[in-house]
């Protein structure tokens, strides 16, 4: 069973400015990947979704990409 990326790297707070990390969890259309695919823990997935939404609002990552 694959381990959660954030617990493996001891990341307790996901920063919206860390776009390189956030992009790992987006598909080519810039939509978030499901936990089933990424094996992210439920807690981290909630933090990740918050960070992604903040980064989108600040124009650091796109809302949609084609």
């Amino acid at each position: 069973m694959k381990q959660c990326f954030f617990s493996k790297n001891n990341i307790k707070h996901i920063d919206y400015k860390d776009t390189e990390i956030l992009k790992k969890f987006l598909n080519p259309h810039a939509r978030m990947l499901a936990r089933k695919k990424t094996s992210v823990s439920a807690k981290s997935q909630r933090q990740l979704s918050e960070a992604v939404k903040r980064a989108r609002f600040m124009g650091l990552i796109p809302f949609i990409a084609r």
Partner: peptide, 20 residues
């Protein structure tokens, strides 16, 4: 142009560049 005001923690939360 735009700003975001959020609650956070005292510790450094930017780890992406270092991690990569």
């Amino acid at each position: 142009l735009r700003f975001i005001l959020i609650k956070t923690v005292r510790e450094n939360t930017l780890v992406g560049a270092k991690l990569l």
